[in-house]
Design a protein around this nucleic acid. Structure first.
Lengths: 161, 161
DNA sequence: TATTGTTATACTCTATAACTATA
DNA sequence: TATAGTTATAGAGTATAACAATA
């Protein structure tokens, strides 16, 4: 025991400030995300799904799993994206029960635009030098508990694509 | 120019990974937040408002400003919190147009419980030493652009109380 | 006149349950 | 029978517009 225990001191000012800063980052993240989606007249959920599908077409069921919501909700979201010509439903040759949701050409374009105008932290991160970003990566990795780089699904970086 | 420009290289792997990690943190943040709210059968918005009011009673208008939504939405949220006996509407002696939303005793208790079970990052941060948390704070501060500690509203740390 | 809170309306997201068509 | 997607339904959050009470 070198200095004051950092595990028992649950409300020390330093930890609280870091938590607060993370809250700020989270808020900033959403502001950017919603603003980017809004530019294309998309809701957050729609933008998220479109971003997912731009990586690879997915069965409805898989989308629900990625979004952590009930499959019945996906129907409506895809309906709206389809009505706007950004997504289309394709039959799955292997299983005639499943429908694959895939982005159209325009959908891909919008997804790309979204990703570019989005990419939160690109701006904020620009403030940091390479060394600092390396340091930040290390700290975040430890926070996230990603010791070796084991993500449940390689295609799913996080909740928000 | 020491190494490769870090501002023009917009898609370098390091930056992308950090962005990805931030996305993971954001997702984790919400999981914890929603789980904590769910334990009390509260929605995210309700928990957020209750948390705000636990710091100080606020006019409906102010709540909308803090949540960055239209004032008309607050009516319903406060209605539901009031129906559950967690919040009450008080007249403002100074201006009879405004109604102050204030937590009840039970509301304060729930808010406290929420804050305790919540406090995201307390666990993850426990993994970091004091020095590492100091380092993380510094990096986040720079990301957030909080050079001196100038927040628009001292009572509002972030989007999520 | 301007402002505060509310109501009315409409849309989206969400969960639950029941239905259909496949498997 | 089990599964994929859908439909129907209900609750909640959101924005817009119009309203009553007060300033």
């Amino acid at each position: 025991m070198a200095t004051t225990s950092s595990r028992t001191q649950r409300t020390d000012p330093l930890t609280l400030e870091v938590v607060e800063l993370i809250g700020t980052v989270v808020a900033r993240y959403h502001e950017e995300y919603d603003a980017a989606a809004g530019k294309h007249a998309l809701t957050g959920a729609q933008a998220r799904v479109l971003g997912l599908l731009s990586l690879e077409p997915l069965p409805m069921r898989r989308i629900a799993q990625k979004l952590k919501c009930e499959p019945s909700n996906i129907t409506g979201i895809i309906d709206r994206l389809e009505a706007r010509g950004l997504v289309e439903r394709r039959p799955d040759p292997a299983d005639r029960r499943v429908k694959l949701a895939a982005p159209t050409e325009e959908g891909l374009t919008v997804a790309r635009s979204l990703r570019e105008s989005l990419n939160f932290a690109r701006e904020p991160l620009a403030e940091l030098s390479r060394e600092e970003r390396l340091s930040l990566r290390g700290l975040l990795r430890r926070m996230v508990g990603e010791d070796a780089g084991l993500l449940a699904d390689p295609a799913t970086p996080a909740g928000y694509d």
